[in-house]
Design a protein around this nucleic acid. Structure first.
Length: 661
DNA sequence: CTTGAGACTTAGGACACCCATC
DNA sequence: GATGGGTGTCCTAAGTCTCAAG
């Protein structure tokens, strides 16, 4: 399944039926439900691993007894035991377990499940996310360093010394001079407007036209700096690396409950020019510098609170254990809140991820019912029900996003399912030998184009015609529907169901099916099994062959053209002139065709990279891959790199070879 | 029902780094 | 030692979804 919106491949209609599943799904949860955040993630295991990679050991973490209240002694024991067997991070051949081992293991897991249950009970029913949280606060962006006096800004050809405030903003622009952003009108307009706000009144009076501004000296200066950085000696580079590591050790971790956890983004975003994606109306605006008085700190009451830099104050220190963030501030472009949160390897994120896949697995159990339901609803007397049913069909079949409405003029004009407009689809009763084809063409998330032509059920087609009747191109396709109505309905169909669950479910179930289908038992060479699907490689090869053929054809055509030219020179008659023209046209045409093929090839390559990368991280239940690895004796490192293994630690620990999504 | 705030996940692009190759 | 392609990491934008208030 390709989860890029870019893809042009048709989404194969999946089999909607599933085999009956054993009733022991619930037991499965209990069986494998819970080890990782107790053992796997314990400090000792981690320290060992990091040492092997040349990192310094993190300071020993003291576990406060009063923070330990939800650990039963029994669990403390199992925790310790876990550490021992989790120290073997490399994949050695699995020990053969004796019956006793198995029983013991099972007992232990049952204990742990009970623990998890209580623990979950305590944490999740009331929305409490942690009991103890301590951290050192954010790392601020380094202060602005004024330019050396020999680096000048010119206005209207004459050098001009800027005030530090104006100069800083000017440097932001100068650093982007090579970027095509700076050629865009909106970018320039927004930048200039915000820049002028930073100017003194004299500067403001003088600098009235961006076209007369010359930033090249500044730009060259920064290029020089970055060259110099690249050219640094090994020792200098090492020193910087060490300093970064020190900063990471000091600010990059927090203590949440009994774990020292990695923080995802402990550095505050530096000031700069806003870079929106696509046609963003706010591109080029000044992203202001964040100061301590903008910052809200969140931590335990009984923790050591982070200190603001000397002479400054935090905006607020609060103790809200119903949220997971450590630091927040309000950003000035959209006025939205930004957060510092934990790394995906943390317990709190891992658990949420796990929960997400469990929801998707519950969808698996009732997806047939839900599909039958929306098909039924295509016939409803009520317009809103029909629209809802068609929308869910798109979300399910095409993996469209929900499509919240957005404030006009605040962001790029992009859409998802519920916000599709009439102009985004075309209906073809017949197209290329297929009936009832819908052509989608719109910009989705991140302004990435979604283009797809799909045959749909006749009823869907007729409904779409109905929805489009008497509408303008810029009217909503689903005028009786929005994401909140949609999700409310989905929630009624299944607890925890929302639009995005379909993406998770469909991606994961497809992976599982494909692995089953494509894994060849006899093909024992792991590398062979792990290569990207042969169908992909094959289609790529075919495409490459086409490209090569085209190249040859082009070479021939060029030779013909040359020959024709030579003829024409000698003969100088109309006929040979005409031949030259024809040949020239042929060359041009072939060149165009070649270009097209090449674009297609890179597209396809990119698709593989981008789409699969994103799916791997966000949509595919890692337990499927882990189980597959365990089943076929494939080292997990072949599938997941270090970061991914950290993120999916819960799954690596939890899934046995018989795991079924 | 509508709106907006808030919290959280998903996403692409820039950049650093590594290693093979010239 | 340049170069360039591939991978991993960082950064932060752009989504989703829930909840509460009007």
């Amino acid at each position: 399944i390709h989860y890029s919106h870019k893809h042009k491949d048709k989404y194969k209609d999946k089999e909607h039926k599933h085999k009956d599943h054993k009733k022991d799904k619930e037991r499965e949860k209990s069986k494998h439900g819970s080890r990782y955040w107790m053992g796997m993630k314990s400090l000792d295991g981690k320290v060992k691993k990091e040492k092997e990679n040349g990192f310094a050991s993190p300071p020993h973490m003291k576990i406060e007894p009063e923070e330990d209240f939800y650990h039963s002694p029994k669990l403390a024991k199992s925790l310790k035991r876990e550490r021992d067997d989790d120290n073997d991070l490399d994949f050695k051949p699995k020990k053969i377990k004796t019956e006793n081992d198995k029983k013991a293991k099972k007992r232990k897991q049952e204990d742990e499940f009970l623990f998890l249950f209580l623990w979950e009970e305590e944490r999740y029913t009331d929305g409490v996310k942690w009991k103890f949280l301590e951290h050192k606060g954010p790392v601020f962006a380094p202060p602005y360093e004024p330019l050396p006096s020999n680096v000048k800004f010119y206005y209207d050809g004459k050098p001009m010394k800027l005030s530090p405030e104006a100069e800083e903003v000017a440097t932001f622009f100068s650093k982007m001079l090579d970027h095509e952003y700076t050629t865009k009108d909106i970018f320039r307009k927004n930048f200039f407007k915000d820049w002028r706000k930073e100017m003194t009144s004299e500067e403001k009076a003088k600098i009235t036209d961006l076209k007369k501004c010359n930033f090249t000296e500044m730009s060259e200066y920064f290029k020089g700096l970055s060259e110099a950085r690249k050219a640094m000696t090994k020792e200098q580079k090492l020193k910087i690396k060490e300093e970064n590591e020190r900063l990471l050790q000091e600010y990059g971790f927090c203590i949440m409950d009994n774990h020292r956890e990695r923080i995802a983004n402990f550095r505050i975003e530096p000031p700069g020019l806003f870079r929106g994606r696509g046609d963003h109306p706010k591109m080029g605006m000044l992203k202001r510098r964040i100061r301590p008085q903008d910052i809200i700190i969140n931590c335990s009451k009984n923790s050591k609170h982070p200190e603001p830099p000397p002479g400054t104050k935090w905006k607020e220190v609060r103790h809200d254990n119903k949220v997971t963030w450590l630091v927040s501030w309000t950003e000035n472009i959209q006025g939205s809140i930004k957060y510092i949160m934990l790394n995906p390897s943390s317990r709190i994120k891992g658990e949420k991820d796990w929960q997400k896949y469990e929801t998707a697995r519950r969808l698996k159990k009732c997806v047939d019912r839900i599909r039958a339901q929306y098909r039924e609803d295509w016939k409803s007397k009520e317009m809103r029900v029909r629209q809802r049913a068609v929308a869910i069909y798109f979300i399910d079949k095409l993996a469209l996003r929900a499509g919240n409405e957005k404030e006009e003029g605040e962001t790029a004009d992009t859409v998802g399912c519920c916000s599709l407009r009439v102009e985004h689809i075309k209906l073809y009763p017949e197209n290329e030998g297929q009936e009832y084809v819908v052509e989608f063409d719109f910009l989705g998330k991140d302004s990435i184009r979604y283009y797809n032509k799909v045959p749909v059920e006749k009823r869907v087609f007729k409904n779409l015609q109905l929805f489009m009747e008497n509408k303008e191109p810029d009217d909503d396709l689903f005028d009786r529907l929005n994401t909140s109505v949609l999700n409310k309905h989905l929630q009624e169909l299944m607890d925890g169901l929302s639009a995005k669950v379909f993406r998770t479910y469909n991606a994961s179930i497809t992976l599982q099916q494909q692995l089953k289908e494509l894994t060849n038992e006899d093909e024992n060479i792991p590398a062979k099994i792990l290569a990207p699907p042969k169908t992909f490689e094959k289609s790529m090869q075919n495409l490459q062959a086409k490209i090569d053929a085209k190249r040859d054809q082009l070479a021939n055509a060029k030779r013909d053209l040359k020959a024709a030219k030579a003829d024409a020179k000698g003969l100088r008659d109309d006929k040979s002139k005409k031949t030259v023209e024809t040949k020239r046209k042929a060359v041009q045409r072939i060149e165009e065709q070649l270009m097209k093929l090449e674009v297609q090839a890179t597209d396809r390559e990119e698709n593989k990279q981008i789409a699969l990368g994103t799916s791997k991280l966000n949509y595919l239940d890692p337990r499927i891959s882990v189980a597959w690895c365990k089943k076929w004796g494939i080292p997990i490192e072949k599938i997941y790199n270090k970061t991914q293994r950290e993120k999916f630690a819960w799954a690596i620990d939890m899934a046995e070879k018989d795991f079924e999504f």
